[in-house]
Design a protein around this nucleic acid. Structure first.
Length: 503
RNA sequence: CGGGGCGUGGCGCAGUCUGGCUAGCGCGUCUGGUUUGGGACCAGAAGGUCGAAGGUUCGAAUCCUUUCGCCCCGACCA
């Protein structure tokens, strides 16, 4: 086979969505399943998710949360209780109406035993968890309740993309109950900070924290906070949301408590979630034209060692050298975890093996043959920069953690640079349209980015944006407030929001 | 749910308009050999009731009818 220029065809610049699919395939992360809109997550993809879970779960525990598990099925009547919530999710619910199968006329099976009340497969669990909370909360002494659940949810999407939007996806959903509005607000903010910390320090993905506009808010929430990241095609990806639910759900579900002053009060609730969509975010933030590039802190394996030998004599010598090296590396503490090091002993061509690991994004590759052993060296290659060369074996072992941290940082810096280069303030509708219109309408090139624009939060603005296929991502926190005119309506305002095309 | 496209060995496709030898090709897989610090080469092999059902015909992957599924573009959305 002729040598290709890049491992992935097409390249990002040629066709970004196709490239995305190709990376998932080349890195063996997931595949389409026999069920429409649902995917099979394969070990390499699932390993990344497991590392995300591990990191997040530790942060949830550190902030006082406990894990619990609630049913997959929600009685239809529960969902009906919060009006906005119903509106938001009704169109995408899978519904169980029968509980039995029996033979049909043509030798197949047909549903039988119709349920008295249909069960909805959870699209999110506010209602079923709220019902439990209403039993659990009696006194102010029961508060706060800080619960997290790792589970799957189903949203019957019309169009799906692997990891980014599938009919079934894996996530965590936190649900908390508080005595006061202030406490609930602090929780909402705290968990957004946890998400941002996770995104930036584990995923090496810079994010912008902010508040959603009314049109983009979670159905039933008083306020939705979000972290937004820029992918390499300059589109935005909502990466985690934290909702201040006020007393909306407490009132709908009767979550009340008796206060110190013996008054009966409705509680204040929050919810927050982050999903396997983050695996997609990882691909689109760091991947390159040779495949996946993993930040070391989330890589299922940080280092792969490839033994190189010809004769049986060499084989045993090289393998034992590799195994000793593997042990020494695996003994090291990498951010509280042992380093994950694998010796790839598979009997296949060296070149093929090398590309196998490049496509899967393993951060560090070591190739070790008799020559390296004689000189007490290792041949070393970094996935992020492609940099490679011979290193003294002991020096490498000593500096490996520093190198991994450097890779992590390099990935973050690169992603931040991309975002900065493609973000700007825009103060006129004309410039806005120019920014978001590709030069080639037939085959749109990568264009646009994040535009910070003065605006007023109104349905009218949302409507204009829609015409240009742009969405309001968020009103960023900590931004300077100064007078301007809404670029859509001309009204005076001090608010600015980030606008972008989005996934 | 509207518009377009596609179902042919594990994967990617050709063949369909204009019905006709034993349904081809590339990649992958298996076996043997030669190679070996690099996505190798040679030889051989396995693997398909052409999405499904019915019809027309001496003869159907190809024509007709029905049906199922998937993909893309919209609308909707984490």
């Amino acid at each position: 086979m002729a040598k290709q220029k890049t491992a992935i065809e097409p390249t990002r610049a040629e066709d970004y969505p196709e490239w995305y699919q190709a990376v998932i395939k080349a890195a063996d992360m997931a595949e389409n399943s026999d069920v429409r809109g649902c995917m099979v997550i394969k070990p390499w993809g699932y390993g990344i998710w497991e590392n995300m879970q591990k990191a997040l779960d530790a942060k949830f525990k550190a902030t006082g949360h406990e894990n619990a598990y609630f049913p997959l099925f929600i009685p239809l009547s529960f969902l009906e209780k919060e009006a906005e919530h119903v509106d938001g999710f009704a169109k995408e619910c899978a519904v169980v109406t029968h509980h039995r199968l029996e033979p049909n006329e043509s030798g197949g099976l047909k549903p039988a035993g119709q349920l008295e009340e249909p069960l909805v497969v959870r699209p999110t669990s506010e209602t079923i968890i709220g019902a439990a909370f209403s039993r659990w909360v009696q006194s102010h002494r029961d508060l706060p309740i800080l619960i997290n659940q790792w589970c799957n949810v189903v949203r019957w999407e019309l169009r799906t993309r692997m990891f980014l939007r599938t009919a079934e996806f894996l996530w965590q959903e936190g649900h908390t109950v508080h005595a006061t509005s202030e406490e609930a607000w602090i929780e909402t903010r705290r968990m957004l900070d946890v998400y941002a910390d996770f995104a930036e320090n584990h995923m090496a993905m810079p994010v912008i924290k902010g508040e959603k506009t009314s049109g983009e808010r979670f159905p039933g929430a008083v306020s939705t906070l979000t972290i937004e990241a820029m992918m390499q095609d300059r589109k935005a990806l909502q990466s985690g949301t934290s909702h201040f639910l006020g007393q909306n759900f407490a009132k709908a579900q009767d979550i009340k408590f008796q206060s110190e002053t013996e008054e009966v009060r409705y509680a204040w609730t929050t919810s927050w979630g982050l999903s396997t969509r983050m695996v997609g975010a990882l691909i689109m933030t760091h991947g390159d034209d040779d495949g996946l590039v993993l930040p070391p802190r989330l890589a299922p394996k940080q280092i792969v060692i490839m033994p190189i030998f010809k004769t049986d004599d060499e084989k045993s010598r090289v393998l034992s050298y590799c195994e000793t090296l593997q042990r020494e590396l695996a003994d090291q503490n990498y951010h509280g975890q042992p380093l994950e090091v694998v010796v790839d002993r598979r009997d296949m061509r060296g070149g093929e093996k090398k590309w196998f690991h490049i496509k899967r994004g393993v951060p560090i590759r070591l190739e070790i043959g008799p020559r390296d052993i004689n000189e007490n060296k290792v041949f070393f290659a970094r996935r992020d920069t492609g940099e490679s060369g011979s290193l003294d074996r002991n020096e490498f072992v000593k500096s490996v953690i520093t190198i991994l941290d450097n890779i992590q940082q390099t990935l973050y810096d690169r992603a931040l640079k991309l975002r900065q280069e493609n973000s700007r303030e825009i103060n006129s509708l004309e410039e806005f349209i120019e920014f978001f219109t590709p030069k080639n309408l037939q085959r749109p090139e990568i264009h646009g980015g994040f535009a910070l624009c003065p605006f007023v939060d109104s349905p009218e603005v949302t409507e204009i944006c829609k015409q240009h296929k742009v969405t309001i991502r968020c009103i960023p926190f900590n931004q300077e407030k100064y007078p301007g005119n809404c670029i859509f309506t001309g009204q005076k305002t001090v608010d600015r929001a980030i606008f972008a095309k989005a996934y």
